[in-house]
């Protein structure tokens, strides 16, 4: 499981992405290892989130392509893609009063015909998605009454109800305190280990990323600088190169993953 296989269903091929101005992601090629957790790290504005949006076809490529099972995403139907991969945006919006169960049910959309929105046939899947994140007890609570960690679990449940093999998470731990960050990342790991989901997530905390991923991708200026196992990627040299950060890297005692001790900004 931890050794990423070479054959990936989701690939970026010379992908260039941008909004109005200059290119944000430049001719980037990446094979997302199947059934593994990939963490994308890099400084602010390096194009991590943009890459994730491109992989999730929320953003159309300027050139190059994202392919799923060899087919360019742009050629596949929106609905079909939605049954294969789901994207959790960084700060998703929700209307007032929406309950957790309502939210999670909406994950069923790509698999429903119009009239099925009124049926309860998908209830088992929704319950399962809630159970997977330990959120059954929250089902009838409005989202705004939840803590940050609970809310993030509810959103992840929604993407689970979508029943996709591939999950793309854009900074799933933003705004969460450390305990809730770990809670969410443990959940992500369970989804991968127990259910074989392929996960790509953008993370800011390099030590946590190293701790919870099988494969790491380090980006700078819209390009991939290094990728490989956490031990291969998280090195003092790389931290200096992409963050301009002088740091020591030690092995954390529990799983032997690299852990970053920042020393100061290198001038």
């Amino acid at each position: 499981m931890s050794a990423p296989s070479t054959g990936g269903r989701l690939r970026a091929d010379a992908l260039t992405l941008g909004y109005d101005g200059p290119d944000i992601v430049r001719e980037l090629s990446l094979t997302v290892p199947d059934a593994a957790i990939t963490a994308v790290i890099g400084p602010n504005g390096c194009g991590k989130s943009t890459l994730l949006r491109g992989l999730g076809r929320l953003l159309a490529p300027r050139s190059g392509a994202v392919t799923l099972d060899g087919e360019p995403l742009a050629k596949l139907s929106t609905r079909h893609v939605a049954t294969q991969l789901s994207v959790l945006p960084q700060t998703p919006a929700a209307p007032s009063g929406l309950t957790v169960a309502d939210l999670v049910s909406r994950g069923r959309h790509p698999r429903q015909k119009w009239y099925q929105q009124f049926s309860v046939s998908d209830e088992a899947v929704v319950l399962d998605a809630l159970a997977a994140t330990d959120s059954l007890g929250l089902a009838d609570k409005p989202l705004e009454d939840l803590s940050g960690g609970q809310r993030q679990r509810a959103w992840i449940s929604m993407t689970l109800a979508q029943e996709t093999d591939i999950l793309l998470l854009d900074e799933p731990t933003t705004y969460l305190d450390l305990a809730h960050q770990v809670e969410v990342l443990e959940l992500v790991r369970r989804l991968n280990r127990d259910r074989g989901r392929t996960v790509v997530m953008v993370l800011h905390d390099i030590s946590l990323a190293a701790r919870y991923s099988d494969h790491m991708v380090a980006m700078k200026d819209g390009r991939i600088v290094a990728q490989g196992t956490p031990a291969e990627v998280v090195t003092p040299e790389l931290l200096l190169e992409i963050f301009g950060l002088a740091a020591q890297v030690v092995q954390e005692p529990t799983a032997g993953r690299p852990h970053v001790i920042p020393l100061g900004a290198a001038v």
Binding site: V81, T83, A93, L103, Q112, Q162
Partner: peptide, 21 residues
């Protein structure tokens, strides 16, 4: 006919797209 799309769009355009809208 617009109901499912409205429910998805209420979660933001990115989420709606991710849900196949």
């Amino acid at each position: 006919m617009n109901i499912p799309a409205l429910n998805a769009l209420a979660l933001g355009e990115d989420t709606a797209r991710s849900l196949g809208i």
